[in-house]
Every structure is written in C-alpha cells, then in structure tokens.
C-alpha cells in the first residue's frame, strides 16, 4: 500500500489543502476525538494530531495551554495511537502526528514507529528536530513507510531550503513568520514575498502554518502555498466556548468557512 500522504500529494487535481491541528487529550480525550471527527467532516484534507509535551518551546499560548491541559489528565502516546486507530475506522485522509522529540525518542524510535504505523499514522512533524539531527529518525521513518515533514522558516538560507526539501518525503511545512505558533496574526506583503520566493525555490508542494486564524489569511497564504495548517485558532475557539460541547460545532463551522474560501483557489 502506498502512503496516504503520497497519494494525496500526488493526486492530479489536488485542491488547496486544509490541515487542522488537534491536540490529543485536549480538553478531554473524548472531545479531542469529536474535534478531530468534525475537522474531517468539515473538509480537512489531512489532519495533524498534536502530541502534548511538557516544554513546548516553539509554541505560543494556545498550544501551551492545550498541552498542559492534556498532560494534566495523563495524556500520553498511547492516547495518540488510540485516537488515530479510532479515527482510521472512519476516514482515509492522511493523519500526521506533530510534537517534540523527547517523547518520541524516549519511547525508542523502533517501537514508536511500529506503533505509529499500526495505528494508522502516515507522517511525522517534529519541530525541534532539524534534518541534520534526524539520521536515526529518518532510517526508521523509511523502514516503516512513514512520511517525514520538516519545517522551513523565513530565516532558512536557500541552501538549507534545498537540503530540507530533500529530506521531506512529500511536502514541506513553511513557517509563515519568525516566531512561535499562536492565533491572531495578520500577514503582510513580507509574508507574501517570502512565500512567493519559496514557491520558486521548491519543487515539492508546501503548506503554510503558524498564526493562521481566519479565512482571509488562509486565502492570502494559499495564493502561494498549497495549503494551510490551522491549530491555535481552533484551541482559541474551544476556550472561548468554555471547553463545552458547543465548541465542536463552532470549530466545524469555522473550518467549513475556511474550506469554502479556499475552494475557489
């Protein structure tokens, strides 16, 4: 079987990709499942499941909060695998796990990748693991046919962009700004110029993430990018709705509106 990520990225009439991010175990395991299901129903092309970590140093306030809440009630890698396996019964979209390196490494890379594969995880994004440090990680990813996604940033030199692209199996993740994740950012000409130059440098498709929190900004980024990742904005919605059931509907509505605005592009 070919990897679901390759299938999606290689499909001839691929639309602009909507990639929601959901923290496993936030605000509860059951609700993270509902949020993920809603995201899928609302037009997600891929799903990112956040693996909570005690020290999320590349993340802003929303992802810090979601990780902390998830860890407070004991969320672990077992929950990631369980959630993925449950979602897998109802969907064929690629599921990527995103999180920091220590939990993955301390599991034992071989064991982690084995468990991830059998749960139905298709790819991994580890923001504190640049390609130079990823040798053993990439060996295991290759062995288990799991996609690896590395990040490029506005500060990456042209040479690094090339090197990073080579290490990404299917697509590249472009960080929109120099900064951490977080909702409510607005993008300007500088972001446009950055993404447009990336477009010229890259042969593989790329999704843009960090700070995307409205249909307008998603649309703007997708002038050059092949898709957007939306995370902190969803956490903010859950918080604004008191972490109650009604938040699930709001997240669904929001993602549908983003989906719609991308459909014309």
């Amino acid at each position: 079987m070919t990897n679901r990520v390759s299938t999606l990225i290689g499909s001839p009439n691929r639309r602009k990709l909507l990639v929601p991010f959901v923290t496993v175990g936030y605000p509860t395991f059951a609700m993270s499942r509902q949020l993920a299901e809603t995201a899928i129903e609302s037009g997600a092309d891929m799903l990112e499941l956040g693996m909570p970590f005690s020290d999320p140093l590349a993340d802003g306030p929303q992802v810090q909060l979601s990780s902390q809440v998830a860890l407070q009630h004991g969320t672990g890698l077992g929950d990631l695998f369980e959630l993925t396996a449950e979602l897998r019964r109802g969907t064929d979209i690629p599921i990527l796990a995103m999180g920091y390196y220590n939990p993955v490494l301390s599991r034992g890379l071989d064991r982690f990748f084995g468990e991830a594969k059998s749960a139905g995880i298709d790819g991994l994004i580890i923001p504190d693991l640049p390609p130079e440090e990823a040798g053993p990680f990439l060996d295991q990813a290759g062995k288990h046919d799991i996609a690896s996604v590395f990040l490029v940033a506005p500060t990456s030199t042209a040479m690094r962009v090339r090197r990073i692209e080579q290490r990404c199996t299917d697509f590249v993740y472009a960080v929109t700004v120099t900064g951490v994740t977080g909702a409510g950012r607005s993008f300007d000409d500088q972001t446009d110029r950055y993404l447009s130059s990336l477009r010229k440098q890259l042969r593989k498709p790329f999704v843009a993430g960090f700070g995307v929190s409205s249909s307008a900004s998603a649309k703007r980024l997708c002038r050059h990018a092949d898709g957007v990742v939306i995370g902190s904005a969803l956490i903010r919605l859950v918080e604004e709705n008191g972490r109650a059931e009604r938040a699930v509907g709001k997240v669904g509505d929001f993602l549908k509106s983003v989906r719609e605005s991308l459909n014309g592009q």
Binding site: Y101, P130, E132, E133, A153, P154, T155, S156, I164
Partner: peptide, 20 residues
C-alpha cells in the same frame, strides 16, 4: 564539527533558530 561531545550535544532547535 557537528557540535557533539561523543554522543551528546547537537542542535535540536526549531528551524528559525538555525540561522542564528
């Protein structure tokens, strides 16, 4: 040359920081 002391060390940081 890779910033290692035997097995230890390295640069496990977000990409943005590599340039700095």
């Amino acid at each position: 040359a890779r910033g290692r002391y035997g097995l230890f060390g390295g640069r496990y940081v977000p990409e943005t920081v590599i340039y700095a």
